[in-house]
Amino acid sequence: MFVHIRDLHFKYPNADDHSLEAFNLTIQKGEITTVLGESGSGKSTLLRLIAGLEMPTKGNIMVGDHCMCSQSKFVQPEKRGVGMVFQDYALFPHMKVEENIKFGLQKWSRREKKTRLNEVIELVNLKGFEKRYPYELSGGQQQRVALARALAPKPKLLLFDEPFSNLDADLQFKIREELRKILKTTGVTSIFVTHDQDDAQALADQIVILRNGKIIETGSPSKIFGTDCDISERLAVKPRVLSKL
């Protein structure tokens, strides 16, 4: 196993409830795992914990052979070798596409940087856009820059936070196929968070269904979508008591 998460708990300091509770997950190397859940189920929180942007209240995270987080240890996000594609892409607005992509390659030599830039640009099919600024690109192109930027430093693990939610349906369909191909070519292990069943079905080797911060079900797409019944029922979030209102 490549990623191993055990008994992960997390609560935001200003929240009443845990946003993630007793979360366990194992991922094999090169696998694409999709976390499927309604809005507010804790998907982003999970990714932020794996990335090291939040500190869990309890639990362990292992990536590769390294312990990222335990009772006594916490590795800072910049030291984890984990890449992330944000929901809003977070492309640096003051940098051109090539600068954005090379941003994570600071320790590399100039030559290596250049080669790597061309490689990933080729991979995401963005040739000719190197000199543009992010705001001069379409939504789909921005998304591909974000992917290229995250892939460039060759992360051990790549995290996606609903990267398609800002794209229209047509484009989503096309990019989904493309993304799976790219991920499989590079062989990078990845976790992909979404509320869209189609995303999950098309991309995943393994699916995890999350509800109110807890795992409801885990398995291969065929196991989860195999039965004919609609899974939206299983997904549905029981409305939390809005005690504060």
Binding site: A51, L53, V82, M84, F92, F103, G104, A150
Partner: peptide
């Protein structure tokens, strides 16, 4: 906070992220 976090995910610590990204923005 996303730009800072993106920068950290790309291997820069808080200080480096600050000078390379935050200050400019």
């Amino acid at each position: 906070i996303h730009f800072t976090e993106a920068s950290r995910m790309l291997g820069n610590n808080v200080t480096k992220s600050f000078f390379k990204v935050d200050v400019k923005l």
